Simulated scan of single mutants.
Amino acid sequence: MSIAKIFILCIQFLSALGVIGLVLLQQGKGAEMGAAFGSGSAGSLFGVTGSANFLSRATAALATVFFICTLALSFLGAHHAQNAAGALGAMKPSPGAATPAAEQERAPSAGSDVPE
């Protein structure tokens, strides 16, 4: 596997873990982040806008990184030359084997038992 694929895969893994963690940290509507820390002063922890705005923006940013990595991996994985005839078109006969068309085109020898 190329270094670019490994790097993108690591970023995708870390962003997936980050999204999972941030979603689990978020509280439902009506619940404050201060309840999770045991006090009511959560405004000083994340600023004036509160924890919901910070967590939702961080989740959206990591989700965007995850989807970009997914698209990049799918592009890198599917970017290879394909035969127009499919898998059967790629098969080549062995050099010692004669094809049926070549056998029909050969004229029988003069001393053969095959009638004409």
Score class of each variant (00 low, 15 high):
M1N: 10
I3Y: 12
K5G: 04
I6L: 12
L9M: 07
C10E: 07
I11E: 01
I11W: 03
I11D: 07
Q12S: 09
L14R: 00
L14N: 03
L14C: 09
S15D: 01
S15M: 03
A16H: 02
L17T: 06
G18W: 01
G18E: 01
G18R: 04
V19F: 01
I20L: 15
G21E: 06
L24K: 13
Q26E: 12
Q26A: 11
G28C: 09
G30S: 07
G30H: 02
G30Y: 02
G30N: 13
A31K: 14
E32P: 05
M33F: 15
M33K: 06
M33E: 13
G34T: 09
G38R: 10
G38V: 12
S39R: 11
S41A: 15
A42V: 03
A42R: 01
A42Y: 13
G43L: 12
G43I: 05
L45M: 13
F46S: 03
F46K: 02
F46T: 11
V48C: 01
V48L: 14
T49Q: 14
T49A: 14
G50K: 07
S51E: 12
A52I: 05
N53Y: 13
F54E: 03
F54P: 01
L55E: 08
S56M: 14
S56I: 13
S56Y: 08
S56K: 14
T59N: 05
A60K: 05
A60N: 10
A61G: 10
T64N: 12
T64C: 13
F66A: 06
F66Q: 08
F67L: 10
F67K: 09
F67Y: 11
I68M: 03
I68E: 06
I68V: 13
L71K: 06
L71H: 01
L71E: 01
L73A: 03
S74T: 06
F75S: 00
L76S: 00
L76M: 00
G77M: 00
G77V: 00
G77Q: 06
A78C: 11
H79I: 04
H80W: 04
A81W: 02
A81S: 09
Q82W: 07
Q82T: 02
N83D: 10
N83M: 10
G86C: 01
A87V: 15
L88E: 13
L88N: 14
G89V: 02
M91W: 11
K92D: 04
P93K: 01
S94W: 03
P95G: 05
P95I: 05
G96L: 14
A97R: 04
A98W: 10
A98H: 04
A98R: 08
E103K: 10
E105C: 11
E105T: 11
E105Y: 02
R106V: 06
A107P: 00
A107S: 02
P108V: 11
A110S: 15
D113K: 13
D113L: 11
V114H: 08
V114N: 10
P115Y: 06
P115D: 08
E116T: 09
E116G: 08
